[in-house]
């Protein structure tokens, strides 16, 4: 029996444009489990990113609820301060655009996120940052500004920042969307490494190469989760077979 970290119940999101309602998420019920690498796939406009925003508390919802394990309050009923604490301590985010603070060095971008977690000693945070920078092979660019490094390096720095506080779950929104092929593979490898180390990940993608890295794939269509595919943990040698398996599955779902 898998342990649930996040659970959504009847989760709805409706956009209203000039009196016209558009249902983007339609009463979704979904669980995100600890240690899973969950991938959300679906056609454009299916509501993938919207679901990620709703599950991570980044965006308001129109109905239903999202519960985070160990938290008494539903995510969308939390105050700004409570939500900030969750983002600092239990969530990590990686975006398509790296979104590093432009006037902080790579190392500082990582540290600033760590220093926000008050109960940790600064020396411990520094040690963890050093370790992450080393693991992600960006130690040599630690004193550079984001504008001075490549896209792949910046994205690795963003992953280090997201992991600095050892979050319960790492949200990744198209993390390889703006990278070249080599950097894409590198980032996905890193995600697999951290997943292998026990990190729960929830990633949105429309890229098959990225999707095969997950062990659970949710298919979203017209605002509903219409399919779920479970896979064994990723191994490089299984890439072809996983790709085939997902293609067949997606075909069944008429994508």
């Amino acid at each position: 029996m898998q342990e649930s970290i996040l659970s959504a119940e009847n989760l709805s999101k409706v956009f209203k444009v000039q009196e016209k309602e558009s249902i983007v998420l339609d009463q979704i019920n979904v669980e995100i489990y600890r240690n899973d690498f969950t991938v959300i796939m679906g056609p454009s406009g299916a509501g993938k990113s919207t679901l990620l925003y709703a599950l991570s508390g980044m965006d308001s919802i129109s109905g239903g609820s999202v519960k985070l394990s160990g938290s008494a309050k539903e995510l969308h009923r939390m105050s700004e301060k409570e939500m900030a604490a969750i983002r600092s301590e239990r969530f990590g985010f990686v975006f398509q655009q790296m979104n590093l603070v432009s006037n902080l060095t790579i190392e500082e971008n990582v540290l600033v996120a760590g220093y926000n977690k008050k109960e940790k000693k600064p020396s411990d945070i520094k040690a963890r940052a050093d370790s992450l920078l080393q693991q992600l092979s960006i130690e040599r660019i630690r004193d550079q500004l984001p504008g001075q490094v490549s896209g792949g390096e910046a994205q690795r720095a963003a992953i280090a920042r997201a992991l600095i506080n050892e979050p319960d779950i790492l949200f990744a929104d198209e993390p390889t969307g703006s990278l070249n092929r080599a950097n894409t593979m590198n980032i996905l490898d890193i995600l697999n490494v951290v997943h292998a180390n026990g990190q729960s990940i929830l990633m949105v993608t429309h890229d098959m190469k990225a999707a095969i890295r997950g062990n659970r794939i949710l298919y979203l269509s017209d605002g509903k989760v219409t399919g779920e595919l479970k896979l064994p943990k990723y191994r490089k040698q299984d890439e072809m077979s996983r790709e085939e398996q997902i293609s067949v599955w997606l075909k069944e779902l008429e994508w």
């Binding site: 301060k81 900030a84 604490a85 600092s88 301590e89 996120a113 920042r161």
Partner: peptide, 15 residues
Amino acid sequence: QKNLAIYKSIGYTSG
């Protein structure tokens, strides 16, 4: 605006 949103995403409060 963007930098401030980044700070918020890593847990800094508006205050």
